[in-house]
Design a protein around this nucleic acid. Structure first.
Lengths: 175, 175
DNA sequence: GCGAAGGTAAAATGATCGTTTTACGCTGCA
DNA sequence: TGCAGCGTAAAACGATCATTTTACCTTCGC
């Protein structure tokens, strides 16, 4: 495995498990099996590492949503949560831990949420045949809710969100 | 104002603004206008302070929800977000930053979510005249979603959640 | 075969962290 | 009058943090 890939993968795991500030560079280099010199050569500094982790995570998530449907969206979240014990949205967590003061991190968060929103926009069009802003907003909200509720109530939260989204979409479709 | 009250209030603000780990004890004592010796006399240590802040916050929130209705619930969240620039649920953030490894903090989070759930249970009974578990789960999910979506999209997210909750409650009521 | 690129190991840097300690001031009550 | 309780100010504590530096090793293309 590529060094950068290995670094980002282990960093993502450690950040999710212990938090960003609480994860020291020693634990990161040891986990990735590289020297600190190499780490800094690759990502500049800790904030650069965090931003890189987030951007990679965003890419991986969208690769997981194969088709534009409500089922696929929440299905992706479900497999997401099944294989990694996520403690809330990692983007918001990074943003919150850094007080929103680190541009690269704030931008990664912003970009991720915008991409998610765009994706849901496509899903709504695919599901009901036209654009509906309120439905987009609601589904994004349900997605966000599922992500965070799952942190303390388990994956079942995703099913609740999916069913609610489906019901609301049906209502709009019928109107 | 009482020392403990002042300490918890400023700590809550600083924690929310900068994160828990990033807020040093110096900034806390300076912000509260007390010596570090007094701080430790009052809350034991930093984790004790965090737990105290969370428990006080929980109490304050429930005091804000005056009646058992969907409107009151999301109305409380709205005024909540208007007067304090919340960056996601402070309970989940504390829990995440400490990796879930600090019992007092994990318990404060757990307790808060349970109390919220119980409250929503009462609201559902008041709204539709009977118990409905799925609706309770969905409204909690919408609440969680609103809390976190508002972090990057503003208070308007609360309106979206309230309308969705109302629509879903109406559907259940009509069935 | 040589030099550049990219890696390791380990120590040093200076700052900052949470926490404890020392020494002292004020206030109210017996 | 004196002492206990509660507060401040400030230094010291040892640990840990992110980052840089020094010295050395391997590999590969020319």
């Amino acid at each position: 495995m590529d060094i950068r890939t290995r670094l980002l993968a282990t960093a993502e795991q450690l950040f999710d498990r212990h938090g960003f500030n609480a994860t020291g560079m020693d634990r990161l280099t040891e986990g990735a099996g590289i020297s600190s010199r190499t780490l800094y050569k690759h990502v500049g500094n800790k904030n650069g590492l965090i931003a890189a982790v987030l951007n990679e995570r965003d890419r991986r998530f969208h690769r997981l949503v194969e088709e534009d449907s409500i089922d696929a969206l929440f299905g992706a979240l479900e497999t997401w949560l099944a294989q990694e014990a996520v403690r809330g949205c990692l983007f918001l967590r990074a943003w919150g831990e850094t007080g929103g003061d680190v541009p690269e991190i704030a931008e990664a968060m912003e970009r991720h949420k915008q991409r998610l929103r765009d994706r849901i926009g496509n899903i709504v069009v695919a599901e009901i045949g036209r654009h509906d802003d309120e439905l987009v907003e609601t589904i994004q909200l349900l997605f966000e809710g599922a992500t965070h509720t799952a942190a303390y109530r388990g994956v079942a939260a995703v099913d609740v969100a999916r069913r609610a989204a489906q019901r609301l979409a049906n209502a709009v479709r019928a109107s």
